[in-house]
Write a protein that binds this DNA or RNA. Structure first.
Lengths: 285, 285
DNA sequence: GTTCCGCATGAATCGATAG
DNA sequence: ACTATCGATTCATGCGGAA
């Protein structure tokens, strides 16, 4: 367990070989996109991206628990006036590798990167690809319920007579609506579109996503005491969030600079979280 | 030109063979999704879907003008606990066929189908795939700029609170909402996420998509007098909208019933549009 | 005219049951 | 084993009638 709650320096494809099988409950990562982050990853070319990634996702598959989930935040870049196809090719190849492509969430970025081009609009969304090893996996939907929409808020305050009894539907495939069940309920389940702002304040790290994003998925797919891996930890957001939520983390990055930054951020949060967490493993950063 | 402003009955793969090359300025369509609409289309199986579609998109490619755009509204279904891959395979195959995959817009449906399952949330988005024949194509961005209305000013005053918890569902017919950027401006360009409700309570016809959806893309990619093709016209929404916007339309459907419905709807709107439209070609429905 | 309320209805998905 | 059908679940919207 000496890898738990640590930020490890190196290429995740190699580092992960030292971890045992099925020791990770969830993987959340935002890998360097093709031809981005040239300084730190050498700018993998779109044409080589799929092979580059597959060599690492093979290790992800091995270390992930059978009921665990891999959430991959990615967006293909524009090349030559076209959306590049390496992401959708990656999906097909990962299925060959043994992954199930369970779902594709959309991250709708509220304040996306500004700009104007003659032939396209600003790109305000990214993919969050959900992969699993089995059809049955851990999912804690109640943890991410959202406030109910306008419909019920107004109506439920004064519930009417007919709403109280279930009106059995006689229409072909109709739904019976039992409104009375909603009394006292102020939350509903979300959809597969998550709508969050990007973080604009930090200019030190490039591929930064808001804490809300990993937070949402960590709450959805893990319990307290589980272990979350981010093989491209970058500035450390996934580890910080995992720690805040009482999960163990494992962070890996090829850049020494990023590792240092991530370690600083998690150490800062640690002290107040060491008390009363079952399954939380002590470890330096 | 005897095909212009008509609803044609038959399989679009065959019907289109009688049209000349490059006679269409834009194609907007929502084809039958795999294994859906069994009554009218016979429910194409996911495994056969790509080949089925490619036989038709070959004709789309031929009749589309070099500066024209093809917008394809589609979403893959879940099969065996996984998102099926036929849509992303189709993208790859259409590129082999000669199409450029220029962009992928997201249609975020405000009111998606209800339901609850242990392993997934409700699906509230669909793909709007943009294909072109050339890098240079017609695009009229100013036509879809979003004016800052009174409601926007209200929103700006108390921004961060409601925007954080729940997505902006009660915003008027808003697409590309980027509220913070609207300060001090009259109009802004939208993004590649469009946010509209499905129309659910029209008793006479149940359109798969709201009129706002084709309307937005027709404004974006055509001018008055251009010709818009929908090879799977269904209840006729694309044709109705094209007509309203002063564009010519060509609608095709394999179902006689849908053709009749579409003809009725376009005839109804026609009389007030015949005046003062350059390039508008008279023709029955 | 407003606002409020009843109601129908969606390109859905899962699991169990039946041929 | 593999496909076809059926029942159950659930939330936002707009229309139309009522207050």
């Amino acid at each position: 367990m000496e890898f738990v709650n640590k930020i490890l320096h190196g290429d995740c494809g190699e580092i992960l070989q030292s971890l045992p099988d099925e020791c990770i409950d969830m993987i959340f990562t935002s890998p360097p996109y093709a031809d981005q982050r040239k300084r730190t990853y050498g700018g993998i070319k779109p044409a080589e991206y799929v092979e580059w990634f597959l060599a690492r996702s093979e290790q992800f598959l091995r270390v992930l628990s059978p009921t665990g989930t891999f959430v991959l935040n990615i967006k293909e870049r524009v090349a030559n006036g076209e959306r590049h196809t390496y992401v959708i090719e990656l999906i097909l190849r990962m299925r060959d590798q043994g992954w199930l492509w369970t779902e594709e969430f959309i991250w709708h970025k509220k304040n996306c990167y500004p700009g104007k081009w003659p032939n396209r609009f600003r790109d305000s969304w990214e993919r969050l690809l959900q992969f699993n090893k089995q059809r049955k996996f851990n999912m804690y939907q109640e943890a991410v319920m959202v406030p109910v929409g306008g419909w019920a808020r107004d109506r439920l305050s004064n519930l009417s007579e007919t709403d109280r009894s279930r009106d059995e539907s006689r229409v072909g495939s109709g739904f019976g609506k039992n409104v009375s069940r909603w009394v006292g309920r102020d939350k509903v389940y979300p959809t597969n579109v998550v709508h969050m702002a990007t973080e604009c304040s930090n200019r030190n790290h490039s591929a930064a996503f808001p804490e809300d994003l990993p937070s949402w998925f960590i709450n959805l797919f893990t319990e307290s005491g589980d272990t979350v891996l981010d093989p491209f930890i970058g500035s450390g957001t996934t580890a910080v969030v995992a720690q805040k939520l009482g999960r163990n983390y494992v962070g890996i990055d090829i850049s020494q600079e990023f590792c240092d930054m991530a370690r600083e951020r998690v150490v800062w949060v640690m002290p107040r979280l060491l008390e009363g967490r079952e399954g939380y493993v002590e470890g330096g950063s």
